[in-house]
Amino acid sequence: MASTYSFDIVSDFDYQELVNAVDQTNRDIISRYDLKDTKTTVELGKETITINTDSEFTLDAVHTILQTKAAKRQLSLKIFDYGKVDAASGNRVRQEIKLKKGISQEIAKQISKSIRDEFKKVQASIQGDAVRVSAKDKDELQAVIQRLKQEDYPVALQFTNYR
């Protein structure tokens, strides 16, 4: 039996689910009456989504569709980092949405500090863009997970490598 148990706190998303959500968004844009003739495009890159449309009104409609499709596929809306709206050629607008992966150093420090303050028998260490939490008791780790799920961090948190 292992003397210590651990898990990792990461911020990640399923890329294939995002591909499916963007594909469904494009299909909705083609079939919706108010967006049909706007020549709106939603393109997924490796780390960004680019929306090109004819007005800020249709951009808001595309945001709503994209967020709905992502939520239905269990993707957190916290992965989207909306950039500023730029004017494109021909009186069109373009917006780039960055996809957030990994936990920044500031948030990792905040998470590990809150764990150390509340749970005295649990150790939290920052490892790159993840936080490893370890303890001798599995119940302590379960309590940490439940506590972190109650908090509202600006990134989507997942709990992996539970052993």
Rank of each mutant, 00 (worst) to 15 (best):
L66E: 03
T68R: 13
S55F: 11
G90I: 10
F7G: 01
D129M: 12
V122P: 00
K113E: 14
F57S: 10
Y153A: 08
R92F: 09
K72T: 08
K39T: 00
K72P: 00
K120R: 12
K101R: 15
D14F: 07
Q110D: 15
D14K: 10
K138I: 09
F159A: 04
I65Y: 02
R73A: 13
T40Y: 01
T64I: 11
A21M: 05
S125W: 00
E106P: 01
A87M: 12
Q74H: 08
D12Y: 10
N161C: 00
V131A: 02
A130R: 13
S134N: 15
E140N: 04
K84T: 15
F80D: 12
E106D: 15
A61L: 13
E118H: 14
D117Q: 11
S104I: 05
F119C: 04
A70E: 03
T68L: 14
F7E: 01
I51Y: 02
K109M: 12
L59G: 03
Q110C: 04
G45V: 03
V62A: 02
K84M: 13
P154T: 12
I51G: 01
S104Y: 06
K72L: 13
Y153P: 02
S134H: 06
G45S: 11
Q110T: 14
L75H: 06
Y153V: 07
S76C: 08
D152H: 09
K149R: 14
I111R: 06
S134Y: 05
D117T: 07
F13K: 06
K100T: 15
K113D: 13
V144L: 05
I9R: 08
A87F: 08
D8I: 02
G128Y: 03
L44P: 14
E56P: 00
A124V: 01
I51K: 03
E56F: 06
S125A: 13
T50P: 01
Q74G: 01
V144G: 09
F80H: 11
D60F: 01
A130H: 05
I65D: 02
T50I: 15
V122E: 01
D152F: 00
P154A: 06
G102W: 03
A135H: 01
L141Y: 00
V22L: 09
A61V: 13
K113H: 11
K78T: 09
A130V: 05
P154E: 09
Y153S: 03
Y162Q: 14
Q74K: 11
Q67L: 14
L66T: 02
A143I: 07
H63M: 04
D137K: 09
L148T: 07
